[in-house]
Design a protein around this nucleic acid. Structure first.
Lengths: 143, 143
DNA sequence: CTCTACATTAGACAAAGTCCAATAATTGAA
DNA sequence: TTCAATTATTGGACTTTGTCTAATGTAGAG
């Protein structure tokens, strides 16, 4: 796996490599996503990007996230019905989801193996296999 | 696994067994969920329940689904960021999700095995493991 | 039958995300 | 460097899913 693109020149190269014109807003959003490799919601990204100066709109955040997703730069993580999280790690891997705190942690794909997946209906292809391990504190209310 | 509760008396018994008072609306919703063992969204259930005569409100559908879920009668399936699906099958199993059509199909849990799940952080328990195999037609646009 | 606790309801509300038409920025070519 | 054409950004209206509330309705124990 290549090094994470921390700085502006690397982010710029990353966008160019994917034929995305590197506007100011897109670079800001990319920076937030790739600097600290967290799982972030659109709303969190909107806040972070506008921390210093308000300079990016909600519409642009959504446009950009959808663009990045379509280009394979990031991946959607669907674990919470309330919001989508975006994952800057597009290598195959899975997720640990803390249902109380909402925290998402990666599980390396090679640590884990699945056997016995069914044959697909004819003419169908697998887009991806998502494994979500939902966890919570053992002393939490529902325990 | 016990037989699916198709008819009114069986549905009534099912609700009573879970200490749910069997109102007209709850029986209608249970019927829609358990008769044809599909994965349905709240909206689909609202439409189906009011097919003949409008007699159940949106609020009641949501109240009832949350109640059934809390009682372990049904399970939420989170595969589509746009809506939650409800699954009348609470036995451990997984899902095949057609990303084009939205169709959800069960994968029997015993057909499939996962190894290499990581140790949990101390004081944490697993609530559940969800495996979602996302599929699409091989001649679909993105292919 | 009546009383009380619980269910249902319409509609207001909230949050996530999309759409639109106007404005602004970027880029390639001259 | 400048210009025109394309592409991006924007605020705000809009849509959808789901929740909340306060008022009304219902069921069933006694």
């Amino acid at each position: 796996m290549e090094a994470m693109p921390y700085n502006r020149p690397m982010l710029l190269a990353l966008l160019r490599k994917h034929d995305i014109s590197p506007t100011h807003q897109r670079l800001e959003i990319a920076q937030v996503l790739f600097r600290r490799c967290h799982h972030l919601s659109a709303d969190q990204i909107l806040v972070m990007v506008n921390k210093r100066h308000a300079e990016t709109s909600k519409a642009t955040v959504y446009n950009t996230l959808n663009l990045f997703r379509d280009c394979g730069l990031i991946r959607e993580v669907i674990v919470d019905p309330k919001r989508v999280f975006y994952d800057p790690n597009t290598e195959p891997h899975h997720h640990l989801y803390n249902v109380d705190s909402g925290e998402i942690t990666d599980i390396a794909a090679d640590a884990l193996s699945v056997s016995g997946l069914p044959d697909l209906p004819p003419g169908m292809v697998t887009v991806g296999v998502d494994i979500i391990v939902r966890i919570r504190a053992s002393d939490s209310l529902l325990g």
